[in-house]
Structures are given as C-alpha cells and as structure tokens.
Amino acid sequence: MNSPLYDALVRANMTESQLARACGVDPKTVSRWISTPSREPHARHRMAASRALDVEETVLWPSVQQLVKSGPDRELVQMYPYRSAAPATLWRSLIKGATRELTFAGYTNYFL
C-alpha cells in the first residue's frame, strides 16, 4: 500500500473519486496508485495529485527522487522552455566548443 498517498488523501479529506477528478484520471487508477506502491503515475498526474493534496510529489512517490539526477555530475545543468529562450551566448559557446561534429536536426533552426 502507498501509505503516504493514502495518508495525504485522509488529511486532505478527499475521496479517491475527488482526487481522480482533480488529476483527470479514472477513480480505479487512483485506487491502483494506493494499492500498488510500485505503480508510479505519469508526471502530469503526479503533479496534479501533489497540487490537489498540497504535498510534495517526492513524499507521495519517494521513487520519483531517483528519476532526476542531482549533484555536480548531473546531466541537466539548465533548462529552457523553448530554444529561443536560451541566450545567444550559450548557443555560440556550444558551437565554438564542439570538437568533432555538429548536427542540427530539425526544420526550425532559423533561431541560430
């Protein structure tokens, strides 16, 4: 049983059906989240449940912490919502820093 999720439901005074409605899923899906601790919802549903219950995702699903690498050797250093949000200096340094090969795959490379 996913005790943290169940406890959060009780504290929030919500039913499984109410949480399902808030997450946009079937009530049976929420029931499965509770009954099967290894069952991890899609990111958008975890976020919706977290918001509805006012509890951090990592409290409800502790294994989520392992999905995002942290520390000095992490793979993601900075994220931008779209290419044009990245500063031109970043693109310049990435292109200048290439030592072997550059591949621009896509049809919207006009931002370069």
Rank of each mutant, 00 (worst) to 15 (best):
P4D: 09
A105D: 11
L76C: 09
F111V: 12
T89W: 04
P81S: 06
A8C: 09
A85M: 06
W61F: 14
E56F: 00
R11K: 14
L67N: 04
F104Q: 05
R51N: 11
A22W: 01
S84Q: 10
A12N: 04
D26E: 09
Y80M: 00
L94N: 03
D7P: 00
T36H: 07
V25R: 08
R51S: 06
S93A: 10
R92L: 13
I95A: 15
H42V: 09
W61G: 01
I34V: 15
Y6K: 15
S3V: 15
V68Y: 06
A88W: 10
A22M: 05
S17C: 02
Q66S: 15
E75P: 00
R32V: 09
P72N: 10
M1S: 14
R83H: 07
K28E: 07
R46A: 08
V10A: 10
R11G: 05
C23R: 12
V59S: 09
G97S: 11
D73I: 00
Q78R: 13
T36D: 15
G24S: 07
E75Y: 03
R100P: 00
R83S: 13
L60C: 03
L5V: 09
W33M: 03
M79L: 12
S93W: 08
R51Y: 03
E40N: 09
H45G: 00
T15V: 07
Y6N: 14
D7W: 00
A49H: 08
V25C: 07
Q65K: 15
E57P: 06
M14T: 05
M14N: 02
E56R: 14
D73F: 07
Y110R: 11
F104T: 01
A49C: 07
Y82Q: 07
C23N: 03
A98N: 03
E56Q: 15
A52C: 07
L19P: 05
N2S: 10
V77G: 02
C23I: 01
A86N: 02
A20R: 02
L112H: 09
R21G: 03
A43M: 09
V68K: 10
E57K: 12
A12G: 08
A85V: 04
Q66C: 02
K28R: 12
V55I: 11
V30M: 04
S31Y: 10
A86W: 03
L112I: 11
T15P: 06
S63F: 01
M1D: 14
D73K: 08
N109L: 14
M47H: 12
W91Q: 00
V30R: 03
A52Y: 04
T89R: 09
R21L: 10
M47S: 10
V64D: 01
R92Q: 12
R51I: 05
R83E: 11
R39L: 15
D54N: 15
T103C: 04
E56I: 00
T89L: 04
W33G: 00
S3P: 00
N109I: 13
G97Q: 04
I95P: 01
V77E: 13
P27F: 03
T89E: 14
L5Q: 06
W61S: 02
T103M: 10
D26P: 03
Y80H: 12
L76Q: 01
S35C: 07
A52E: 06
L19T: 06
R44C: 00
F104H: 05
E75C: 02
P87L: 08
A20F: 00
Q65I: 02
T99S: 14
Y107N: 15
D26W: 02
S17N: 13
